[in-house]
Write a protein that binds this DNA or RNA. Structure first.
Lengths: 205, 205
DNA sequence: CCATAATACGAATAATTGCTCGCATTCAAT
DNA sequence: ATTGAATGCGAGCAATTATTCGTATTATGG
């Protein structure tokens, strides 16, 4: 951020700007995001925008940071009260919820549709690292049960397999390569695949 | 294509244009691809470019089609003489080769770096459908051995898991989330995951 | 109140770039 | 050779858009 807003009005202004940018993305995609349009929508001058964001990219980053936070918060809420279960149930639950959240939020839908998914540094790096960390802890804790070899590589493969397959499905919108496959089926497939992978370590050992 | 080149010189021109565009992408990424630059590089006028390509996107599509063909051809060559093996060996072989091809070709590297991976319709749709089809045939043929349930969904999950995880790794360039993981380890992980998934169907049945 | 810093404004700028169009050149058929 | 079609040219148009800067307004500390 170019300059930190110190007064209350400027903090509100920055918030409005991010919100307007989010709406703009949600409606017309990234291509519709013009600094002038955002300012117009927020009822703010472009000049003020550049007072707090060094350039357009910084604004977009701010939006995706907010979106990532929202996603994580929503997931946390939905997982509350879901106690300790076996890996399969937990995996299915998490995937189902994330799917549902992403599917029912216009901003997230459009972010998925418009962001370059393979560059998660921009957007969902937070979710990715949280997921990776959660799995690492789980697998280390249950090392006796699931002695996964080469944990870093396994985590990389699993996390990426999940997030991109989901993103791809949500993008496809039912048509294309995903024709006729339901979200539940994708969740089931991913769950089975991850579970089989982790459990295969047992027989290998 | 706006107009099919009928004379020899115009066919050559179109070829030069695509080649120049490929080089342009390979060097500076998609953002460096201006119709004017491409024409300049090809030693051809922009006007001529627009004689054969309706717009910039059509040119990019042509480039990615050529790239996809090249990838497929290279893979075919490398798989020649690789007879019938079990699923694990075959999977490992294919993944290893594809990895190697993608890693050692500037155009492919840049395409991966710059294309929106989750929109394979643009680029690697050919590879995707070939892979999907090959797996479908294999799994149907070995239905007795690997009675995979819900084949379409399973194929979708497997193919996407593979292609995006690979793409992500190749993009990361060793740093970032893929820090310290080797290509061989990623291939091993993917191979294990796919194999475990398919084989888990046996126990489920 | 005053002075000064912070904030806000928005018309104008500057650069980029996809694409067209009128004209020139080359080919192919007769 | 001739002629019409195909091909090739490239300066320039038109539209978009990120960003700046001189000015006006509002807050804050003394």
């Amino acid at each position: 951020m170019r300059k930190a807003p110190s007064q209350a009005r400027s903090r509100a202004l920055v918030g409005d700007l991010i919100e307007a940018a989010a709406l703009e993305i949600a409606e017309g995609g990234l291509q519709a995001l013009t600094t002038n349009r955002v300012a117009l929508r927020a009822g703010i001058s472009v000049g003020s925008l550049y007072q707090y964001f060094h350039d357009k990219d910084e604004l977009i980053e701010a939006v995706s940071a907010v979106a990532a936070d929202r996603l994580l918060a929503a997931l946390n809420t939905r997982m509350r009260g879901f106690g300790a279960h076996d890996m399969r149930s937990t995996t299915r639950k998490v995937l189902t919820e994330v799917f549902d959240i992403l599917q029912n939020d216009a901003l997230h839908r459009e972010m998925l549709r418009n962001f370059d998914l393979a560059r998660p540094g921009v957007g969902f790096a937070t979710l990715e690292s949280v997921m990776t960390e959660a799995m690492r802890v789980y697998l280390l804790r249950n090392q006796a049960k699931y002695p996964v070899a080469n944990l870093p590589a396994a985590l990389f493969v699993m996390v990426n397999a999940v997030q991109f397959t989901m993103a791809r499905y949500l993008r496809g919108g039912g048509g294309g390569a995903a024709g006729g496959i339901s979200a539940a089926q994708v969740v089931a497939g991913l769950t089975d695949m991850l579970t089989a992978y982790v459990e295969s370590a047992v027989r290998a050992a």
